[in-house]
Amino acid sequence: MLSRSVFEIEEFMMQHVPGQNQGKITLYALSTCGWCEKTKKFLDNLGAEYSYVYVDLLQSDQKQAAVNEVRRWNPRCSFPTVVINDEVCVVGYNEQEIKKAIGI
């Protein structure tokens, strides 16, 4: 376990949703949060391939790994946080910003 990088731990926690390839889309969400749910529904309706994780449902060390990852993009570590192509981060439920970031 110790030899695994943070990135690998991340991959292992993620749920993958199949769909059209619009680049790499990762959603960090909470299972109890209304805006996270809206963001997830938006991605579902878009039909895009994406990965998501409910950070609140993770075990403590995985949770910490996910929090560290979110913090890299969004220091306040708020949810939802969407990371697109390991490049752009959209904080909060924001359809326009997500569309812009994936170029549609």
């Binding site: 909470l30 299972s31 109890t32 949060c33 209304g34 805006w35 996270c36 749910e37 950070v55 609140d56 929090v67 570590c77 708020s78 949810f79």
Partner: peptide
């Protein structure tokens, strides 16, 4: 109602009404 479900979920998990949209 979904947010209120979140409050009750957090009550079960943590014993208090942690905000559903924040990581407790």
């Amino acid at each position: 109602k979904e947010l209120i479900r979140g409050l009750l979920t957090n009550e079960q998990r943590y014993g208090y009404w942690a905000c559903p949209c924040r990581l407790a």
